[in-house]
Computed example of a mutant assay.
Amino acid sequence: MKGQEWYQADEIAETYESKRFSDGGRLIDEREKRAVLSAVGPVEGKRMLEIACGTGRFTTMLAERGADIVGLDISPAMLQEGRKKARAAGVADHLEFMRGDAARLPFPDDHFETVIAMRFFHLADTPASFLAEMQRVARDQVVFDTFRRFSTRSIYNWLLPMGSRLYSRMEVEQLLDGAGLRLADEEHDFFLPYGLYRKLPDRLAGRLREVDTAVMESPIGDHVASVSYWDTRLKG
């Protein structure tokens, strides 16, 4: 995985959310959470797994809605932040955080109804094997996001020290077919790359988002989006 050592550093975990999801980054957090909730639907009593859960943004959110969920991550520091978040939300007794490798998930086949992975595949060095492993432990649904190859993200990528793996639609379709998954639904958003929003104060980011949304709601929106959210089901 790209940036694995950087990601696991204590100081990165402690400031991860404040640097990415405050000010203009709040818009990204809200949009990603809407995408997840739209894909998974009602989660009361649903057995779920979040891969690369980080500080538990989605794990805690889904636990608050009644999911029986496990958050798995390779970073002990990120998991510690996740546990703090769960305690603050009053759901620490209703979820489990555990350290693990997404390439070798420590669960039997078909163990979870739904498996999700957000902000993961842009760092994946072997996405096909990761997706196949997610499919193995899922009984019904796999939800994940990708950054689009032919978008403003490709320009922004040049400025990043680690870069990101970008995907065309054809590449995603090939990954799904190879993993035995079929596409059930999809959403595409953000003409402008995520990083731009994180650098702006709330008010300016909100105005920029209005322009961005207008572009996305136009006929060309799906073709110029920089982010895609994929809701997939097991074939058969």
Rank of each mutant, 00 (worst) to 15 (best):
V224E: 07
L27F: 12
V43K: 05
Q141C: 08
P201E: 07
D110Y: 11
K199Y: 07
T15D: 10
V91G: 00
I51R: 01
E171S: 06
L95S: 02
E171K: 07
K2E: 08
P161V: 02
R83T: 03
P127H: 08
D202F: 15
V211M: 12
M134C: 13
L123C: 12
L200E: 01
T152V: 12
A184T: 08
L123Q: 06
H94G: 00
G100V: 11
A88K: 14
A103P: 04
S228L: 09
A86T: 00
F130C: 11
F144D: 00
R148K: 13
E11Q: 14
K2I: 12
E186L: 15
E14H: 09
F191S: 01
R31M: 06
P219N: 03
G206C: 14
R153H: 14
L208S: 09
P193D: 02
P108R: 12
E187S: 13
L204D: 03
T114G: 00
S38I: 03
S38H: 14
F191Q: 02
A225W: 08
R153P: 00
V143M: 01
S164R: 09
N157R: 09
E187L: 10
D202Q: 14
V143I: 15
R207A: 07
E44V: 06
L72T: 02
R65M: 05
Y16I: 00
Y194S: 11
E186G: 04
R148A: 13
E30N: 07
Y167R: 00
M98W: 03
E186K: 14
L183E: 06
R207N: 06
M118H: 09
M162A: 11
L196I: 11
R26H: 09
Y229V: 03
K2Q: 11
R182I: 10
G206P: 04
T55G: 14
D110A: 15
R83F: 06
F130T: 07
F147R: 09
A103H: 14
E64V: 00
D177V: 09
R169V: 05
L123H: 15
R198Q: 15
A67K: 08
V224K: 13
A102C: 12
M98C: 08
D145R: 11
R26I: 04
E173A: 14
R203K: 12
A179Y: 02
L79A: 05
R34Q: 14
S151I: 01
V115K: 04
R148I: 04
D68E: 15
P219G: 08
F147P: 00
D23L: 12
V43S: 03
T152Q: 15
R233V: 02
R198M: 15
R148N: 12
G56Q: 04
K84L: 11
D140W: 05
E44S: 13
M118E: 05
L166W: 01
V115L: 04
S226A: 12
D177R: 13
Q174T: 11
W6R: 08
K85T: 07
T152H: 15
L183P: 00
F120S: 06
G3L: 01
A214T: 13
D110L: 11
